[in-house]
């Protein structure tokens, strides 16, 4: 009896929390699809706001995608060898770096952005280009890539596999591409999804670094909330969700692949 009661209470609580989180999102999505938010649903459903968002802000969406892809390429090219280096190194410094990998998560994005502005702010051309924001995104997302790959490398017993490969005549390069990379593919995938998601959603650093010509999706979103009708901002949210939710689902799925396996 008390078991049933406890179950009901837990279920109720869980549902309540879900509602608490989902309702605002649902409201926002609805707002983006209704003719007039203040009159409510009876004013009718429309895609007008979505197309307006597209007309006004499509370049922010393209920039965000471009940034995320460039960020992905760079973090993969740097992150996978870096994780591998950390794994191989028995040096004390390697452990220190592993700890440092948490730092960008802990340091506020604003501080990272300020530091970047201090160092590179005076190079006008660079300051005005999207590459400047790219640097910020790489700094922010690289640790996630390294950590994801590193942890899979750990569980994959790579050193042993590499010893086996080397006994079969494989050179360090052949081992890296033939054994290391395929056996941490799930980690690279998980890291990649994480990097893309974080890059697309990144606001703090980007807001500090952007110029009127280099606005990303979240910056545009803030902009629209500040200066447009509520319906436009909400429709923008909808677009954002459509981009980010599939990525989040894929992260979940990749997480299962990376889980313990035998």
């Amino acid at each position: 009896m008390s078991q049933r009661l406890r179950f009901s209470l837990q279920l109720g609580f869980t549902l309540l929390v879900c509602l608490f989180m989902i309702v605002p999102i649902a409201m926002s999505v609805m707002a983006g699809l209704t003719e007039n938010y203040f009159q409510g649903l009876q004013s009718g459903l429309t895609l007008r706001w979505v197309s307006e968002v597209w007309a006004l802000y499509s370049d922010t969406i393209w920039l965000s995608i471009k940034l995320a892809m460039a960020c992905l390429v760079i973090t993969t090219l740097i992150g996978v060898p870096a994780a591998y280096g950390l794994l191989r190194s028995r040096h004390r410094i390697a452990h220190a770096i592993e700890e440092l990998l948490l730092l960008p998560v802990a340091v506020p994005g604003l501080a990272t952005a300020l530091a970047l502005l201090l160092v590179y702010g005076s190079y006008r051309e660079f300051r005005a280009s999207w590459l400047f924001i790219l640097i910020g995104h790489v700094l922010f997302t690289l640790p996630f890539m390294v950590r994801a790959v590193h942890s899979v490398m750990h569980t994959a017993r790579l050193p042993l596999l590499e010893e086996a490969a080397s006994s079969l005549g494989a050179s360090p390069w052949q081992r890296f591409f033939g054994v290391v990379v395929p056996n941490c593919a799930s980690g690279i995938l998980a890291g990649a999804l994480m990097v893309v998601t974080l890059s697309i959603g990144e606001f703090n650093i980007t807001w500090m670094l952007h110029t009127p010509l280099t606005k990303t999706l979240p910056v545009g979103l803030a902009d629209s909330y500040a200066s447009m009708r509520l319906e436009v901002g909400s429709a923008y949210t909808l677009v954002f969700l459509l981009m980010i939710v599939p990525l989040l689902v894929m992260i979940q799925w990749a997480g299962k692949l990376t889980g313990p396996r035998r």
Partner: peptide, 20 residues
Amino acid sequence: LPIEKRDVGMVFQNYALFPN
């Protein structure tokens, strides 16, 4: 010489087979 140039075959306790 590193191991890959020594022409040795090795069999390990934990098999060390390539899972992929």
